[in-house]
């Protein structure tokens, strides 16, 4: 939790001293591609990229994640593009996305071939439900850390709760919700900046 204690008004920090090697980006994304089931992978990416490796800080990750989710595309694929781009430019993005998809590409085809046999095995289905539940736990970690980062800003807390409620509970379409919430949140950030300075 070190990064939480250090105020970071510019959002610039935690840039690694040396450039991250492409092979490390590839290895991480190959692992990410093969290790999460049924969604919830963003929590795992956060753990590996921010908590464990310190390749970027929480604010960089979360704001980049919002950009990735707002524009079209598979969220986890966009996140690979962002992480790769941020660390090593276009070669980083290319390597991250390719490594992310390489393993699942062959596994999913193998699974389709074995499908008739696999669906008889209830233990596999039950086990995958367990993996999904743990992946939800990883997401909760990011939500808790992101929330505690802004715990003194009532407006930001309202933005978090409002977005979660509208998209998660009410299942309103993401784009209109974001079109309302983002300008409000940015206006509050600008207002705080003016009040501070």
């Amino acid at each position: 939790m070190e990064t939480l204690d250090r105020p970071d008004p510019t959002g610039q920090a935690a840039a690694p001293d040396r450039p991250v090697r492409l092979i490390d980006i590839a290895m991480l994304h190959a692992k990410l591609g093969l290790s999460a089931f049924g969604g919830g992978m963003s929590g795992l990416v956060f753990h590996e990229v921010v908590t464990r490796r310190g390749w970027m800080n929480e604010r960089e990750f979360l704001s980049g994640l919002a950009v990735c989710q707002i524009i079209p595309g598979v969220n986890i694929g966009n996140l690979a593009i962002y992480v790769g781009q941020r660390l090593r430019g276009w070669p980083g993005s290319l390597v991250a996305l390719s490594a992310l998809l390489f393993g699942p590409f062959f596994v999913v085809i193998g699974a389709a071939m074995a499908y008739d046999w696999l669906r008889q095995i209830g233990a596999i289905t039950a086990g995958l439900a367990g993996v999904t539940a743990a992946a939800i736990g990883l997401l909760l970690v990011v939500v808790i850390r992101g929330t505690s980062q802004v715990s003194r800003q009532v407006g930001s807390l309202a933005v978090i709760a409002g977005t979660a409620w509208a998209v998660g509970v009410m299942r309103w379409p993401l784009i209109p919700v974001v079109l309302v919430v983002v300008p409000c949140s940015i206006a509050m950030a600008a207002w705080r900046r003016r009040a501070d300075g």
Binding site: L65, L139, G146, V150, L157, I160, S185, A187, A190
Partner: peptide
């Protein structure tokens, strides 16, 4: 700073 809580909220929704 404005996008960060939106990202957090979208993760909670996820």
């Amino acid at each position: 700073e404005g996008l960060t809580p939106v990202g957090t909220g979208l993760l909670a929704a996820g």
